[in-house]
Every structure is written in C-alpha cells, then in structure tokens.
Amino acid sequence: MLFYLFAAIALAGGLGVVAFRNPVTSAFSLVASFLGLAALFIHLNAFLVGVLQVLVYAGAIMVLFLFIIMLLDIKSDEGPKITKLMGLGAALLAMVFVGMLWRVTVSLKSAPLETLYPEVRSDAHEIGRLLFGEYFFPVQVVGILLLVATIGVVVLSRRAVR
C-alpha cells in the first residue's frame, strides 16, 4: 500500500518537472520526486541509499540547481515549438514503450515485495565492505573519472584575466 503512495509521489514529481513552465517550480517538483524515491528505497530496507538520496540529491544537488536558476535569472521557459509531427512521433514512441513495459510486466511472476530484502541489516556497513572489498576496482575507476571531471571543469570554465 505504502509502495503505491510513494511511487505516486515520485511519478507526480517527475511529471511536474516536465509539465511546469517555471524552472523553479520544476526544480521543486524534482525534489518531490526524489523524496518519493528515497521513501521507496527505505521501504526496501535500503536505509543508507534512501538517506543519501535525500542528503545528496534532494539536498546538495537541488540547492545547486536552484542557485544556478536564480543566478542566471531564468524567468520562465518558452520552450521549443513542438510541431504536430514531433508530437505524434513522441506519442507513438511513448505508447510503444508503455506497451512493451506492460507485456514484460505481465509476463513476470509476482513475488511479495518483502522477499526482496528479508531482513534489516546495517547496510552502511555492508555497502562499505562491498565498495572497498569486492568492488574495489570499479571504485578506483570512478576515482579517475572524478579527476577527469575536475580537469574538465577547470579547462572549460577558465576565463582570461585582463
């Protein structure tokens, strides 16, 4: 039951991001969507991921988004002109996607949600052990990725001083 409530919040938030014309409203819809997602994670007993979702995404990243929106002083987005053909194509694509998703979903055997995560564990502990044990190699690669991203920011935003 709770699952449907939170899923509805996440979906409504997502819809709001696309539907609202004012970027600040869109940003706040995104926060609602993230909170719904976080609740879903906690519902699945993934407490750490849920909390991180709130802290990092709903907290830090959204604040950054809002800062940028206010810094650039974007009033409201006119949006690109959508021709009938584009609308038709998008609707067709969406329908194909939903149809595929529907067929796949009904083909699945349903299992109670609780069986996915049968017991409550200290998952921060678990995740830490996984990251620095089994998944040590991908974590190192992510480290290089962050280094590259940092270099990229410096290179692409450097400004000449006169």
Binding site: F137, P138, V141, I144, V148, A149, G152
Partner: peptide, 21 residues
C-alpha cells in the same frame, strides 16, 4: 556490468570535455 558501466562512463565523460575543447 559494473566495470562495463564505469569504464564506459570514464570514456564518455572525458569525451564531453575534449569535444568542447
């Protein structure tokens, strides 16, 4: 799947920077 995704992203992110160099 994890190492595929991580290495692919390293390459893609580097290209984001280099293409707009």
């Amino acid at each position: 799947l994890v190492s595929i995704f991580v290495s692919l992203e390293l390459v893609t992110v580097t290209f984001y920077v280099l293409v707009a160099y």
